[in-house]
Simulated assay, not measured.
Amino acid sequence: MTERTLLVVLFDDVQSLDVTGPVEVFQGAALACGDRSAYRIRTASLDGSPVRTSSGLTLVPDGSLMDASTPHTLLVPGGEGTRRPDPRLVDWLRDNAPQTGRLVSVCTGALLLAEAGLLDGHRATTHWRACDHLAGAYPKVDVEPDPIFVRDGRISTSAGVTAGIDLALALVEEDLGRDIALTVARHLVVFLRRPGNQSQFSAQLAAQTATRDPLRAVQHWVTQHPEADLSVESLAERAGLSPRHFARAFHAETGTTPGRYVERVRLEHARRLLEDTADGVTKISRACGYGTSEAMRRAFVKALGVAPAEYRRRFRGPAQQPAH
């Protein structure tokens, strides 16, 4: 089996989960395939000294970046330390990262890559809070704020924190196959795998949570009953308000209209069913409130650019398609 070396960059105020999440995925993959050499993982700081994470944990690196050999995969995590990068670290990345086989950043680690000029001319993402800064400070980077991860050639960047696990699972699937990646995902009790173009937000996170109990209860009820009558009139009656008052209040408190919120919930639910079940498109369309498979197809094409069957094929691969 091919040996892949993985070097993880450490620095003060690094986000600990940006480090440990992907490391657990790659180490788990090596164990799952029965070959510990599948991934040889090392951590390194500039001078080999321990670093203190943003949560207060101390990480002890395996060695110094200055002494590290060129890895197959270089992983740059994020954290508060990326806001005030050590110029020596940026110089090291600029000089050494181009020689690696694969360059990966998690969360705001993309800011370090951008500062070193490594993302110029490439598509990239980062934590949603840092996307505007990345785009404004580094105009040569094609920033995509919505996806949980973006892969552009040998460079892969992910959104905040747990998105690094999604990206690591995608890389393991590429290296060792879906079965190994699925074994790791099950062990970590995470999904295999949220596709890279999935939004950084669920429907509920994308919208603000209403402050008033009746509106907040309606939001929750919608997510639990996507198949129901979710017209403004029906939801207004549930909230005990007139349709006009309800629509105004819902938009004021959540930042989106009731109709748009319902669209997001139904699409999100349909995607989960396509990913996790063998149910046919017609059955899923009814379970999600679309009524017909054609209505669901239109919603998918509008939001994602692909039909439901194609979405399932891309997510699950041909070997995992349901029988017809």
Results as ranks from 00 to 15, higher is better:
Val190Tyr: 11
Arg83Met: 12
Glu174Ile: 01
Asp132Thr: 14
Asp213Gly: 09
Arg212Tyr: 02
Gly81Ala: 12
Pro139Phe: 04
Thr157Val: 06
Val184Ala: 09
Asp91Thr: 15
Gly160Asp: 07
His187Gln: 15
Leu119Phe: 08
Asp120His: 07
Ala217Ile: 02
Thr125Leu: 00
Arg216Lys: 11
Gly136Gln: 15
Leu75Asn: 07
Gln204Leu: 06
Asp166Trp: 05
Pro87Thr: 04
Ala137Gly: 14
Ala159Lys: 04
Cys107Phe: 05
Arg129Gly: 09
Leu205Tyr: 08
Asp175Pro: 11
Glu80Gly: 14
Cys131Asn: 10
Ser202Thr: 14
Ala114Phe: 13
His127Val: 00
Ala210Asp: 02
Val218Asn: 06
Gly164Tyr: 12
Val104Ile: 00
Asp175Cys: 03
Ala97Ile: 06
Ile155Arg: 12
Arg193Gln: 12
Val161Thr: 01
Arg102Asp: 09
Leu119Gln: 11
Gly160Met: 02
Arg88Trp: 02
Asn96Asp: 08
Val190Met: 00
Thr211Met: 05
His187Trp: 10
Val104Gly: 01
Leu169Val: 03
Leu118Ala: 10
Lys140Trp: 13
Val184Trp: 13
Ala159Phe: 05
Pro85Phe: 14
Leu103Asn: 04
Leu118Phe: 13
Gln204Asn: 12
Val218Lys: 00
Pro145Ser: 11
Ala116Ile: 04
Leu205Phe: 03
Ser156Pro: 14
His187Thr: 05
His127Ala: 10
Asp91Arg: 13
Arg216Trp: 08
Asp152Lys: 03
Arg83Gln: 06
Ala116Val: 11
Pro139Leu: 04
Gly109Gln: 02
Leu167Ser: 02
Val104Lys: 10
Arg88Asp: 10
Arg123Phe: 01
Leu74Lys: 15
Arg84Ser: 04
Val141Asn: 11
Arg186Glu: 15
Ser156Leu: 08
Leu75Gly: 07
Gly196His: 07
Leu169Ser: 05
Val218Arg: 08
Ala185Phe: 07
Arg123His: 06
Thr209Val: 08
His122Arg: 15
Gly196Trp: 13
Tyr138Ser: 11
His127Leu: 03
Gln198Asn: 05
Ala137Asp: 13
Gly136Ser: 15
His220Thr: 14
Leu118Tyr: 06
Pro195Met: 05
Glu115Leu: 00
Glu174Asp: 07
Glu80Pro: 07
Arg151Tyr: 01
Arg129Met: 10
His187Ser: 14
Leu113Lys: 12
Ser202Met: 00
Glu144Asp: 06
Tyr138Val: 09
Ala168Met: 13
Gly121Met: 07
Gln208Pro: 03
Phe191Pro: 06
Thr209Cys: 05
Leu75Thr: 03
Asp86Arg: 07
Asp175Met: 10
